Simulated scan of single mutants.
Amino acid sequence: MRRVPARPPGLLPGLALLALLLVYAGAGPYAGPCSPTDIDYGALSAPPGAGHWFGTNRIGQDVFAQTARGLRESLLIGLSVALTGTAFAALVGTCAGYAGGWTDRALTFVVDLFLVVPGFLVLVVLAPPLRRAGWAGYAGALAALGWMLTARAVRGMALSLRERPYVTAARYMGVRPLRIVRRHILPHMTSFLITHATVATAGAVISEAGLSYFGFGVQPPDVSLGTLIADSTEVALAYPWMFFFPAGLLFCFVLAVNLIGEALRSALDPSAVRAEVPA
């Protein structure tokens, strides 16, 4: 019998693709022939070429620089939403599961209350004030409306872990609850939280792109992948470079994050390690 490889096959391709996207998002607005704010009035809707590697849009802006800027904005929102939402879900779920009693009932009621709130409609209503807050406002709103299912999963894990013999022994020995949670509860949730935060980043980027596509997300003069896709949808067949470069980067980012998330799940989750019986 042999065990599955410690390094899942999708990890290295996912990390390599993600690294390329991060380099492009960070250096792309400054590494190309034009900056995101430059306008070339002599090359309106120009195809890719030496002067404009990804071509230009309908007002003469360089698509290479604009796409890099939009990718950076989307990544900032996605990472902020994933980290904030996962941290808050871990806090609420752990407190509810470990404390039990009225604390569990109260926090579970709050989680269930948020679950019935139509998130998209709330974001539409909050769109005007969020526009003034910039990308940080959208990140906070998306995080506030996307932590509940994770909190319920963490609560279930905490309920199971608090009945473990070593946790019970620590309570009888008078160890403070905060110390028990930090030393005996959270370490057993690390793999789940890391995997969830990784995959949630892709979900947050898709959510932001969807909101921006319908006009409720990032607003000019800021750009994101969603706004670039929305602006170029009508001319996707006539000027495909305006649409397919931002859409392709969105696809590549989601693919990279999903590959990394699946690899992390296989590597960090003990139940994912299975023995293979030779034929």
Score class of each variant (00 low, 15 high):
E234C: 09
I180Y: 04
G248Q: 08
V154W: 07
A141S: 13
R72Q: 12
L161Y: 09
T227L: 00
W102F: 14
I206T: 14
P128T: 03
L255K: 10
F251W: 03
L159S: 08
L75H: 01
I206G: 10
G32T: 02
F243N: 04
H184D: 03
H52G: 00
R265Q: 04
T67N: 03
S80F: 11
A25Y: 03
P13D: 02
V110Q: 12
F192I: 06
Y172I: 09
G70T: 02
T198D: 02
A50H: 10
R72F: 04
L107T: 01
S80V: 07
V23M: 06
W147E: 00
N258K: 12
C34I: 10
A256I: 05
L225H: 09
L126W: 00
G70D: 01
A209K: 08
H184F: 10
H184L: 08
A43M: 01
F214H: 11
P165F: 07
L142C: 06
A6D: 08
A19E: 13
P187Q: 07
L149S: 12
T190V: 14
A197H: 02
V117Y: 09
S80H: 00
T108C: 12
G134A: 04
R2Y: 13
H188D: 14
A27V: 13
G134N: 07
G32F: 08
R7T: 15
P165C: 05
A19P: 14
T67H: 04
R72T: 05
D62A: 05
I229R: 05
L22F: 03
A46Y: 11
Y41C: 07
I260L: 06
H188W: 13
R182Y: 04
V181R: 11
F244T: 10
F253M: 11
R176L: 14
G100A: 03
R105D: 14
F251I: 10
I194L: 00
L11W: 08
A106P: 00
T94L: 06
L15R: 03
A82K: 09
F120P: 12
G28K: 02
Y166K: 12
V124K: 11
L193D: 01
A272I: 08
R155K: 03
G226H: 05
R176K: 12
A151E: 04
R69T: 15
C95G: 09
S160Q: 14
V122T: 11
A143Q: 06
G51M: 01
Y98G: 06
V273A: 15
V111C: 15
T67V: 04
V23N: 04
D104G: 09
A279G: 15
G78N: 10
A247I: 08
V167K: 01
A202Q: 10
G261C: 02
G26E: 09
R105S: 12
G10D: 14
T56L: 03
A43C: 09
G28V: 00
R152V: 01
A263P: 04
V111I: 14
R7G: 14
A267K: 03
A27F: 02
V205S: 09
M1N: 03
L255M: 01
E262Q: 10
T108P: 08
L18T: 00
Y24M: 06
Y166E: 15
P270Y: 07
V235W: 04
T67P: 03
V117S: 05
T168W: 13
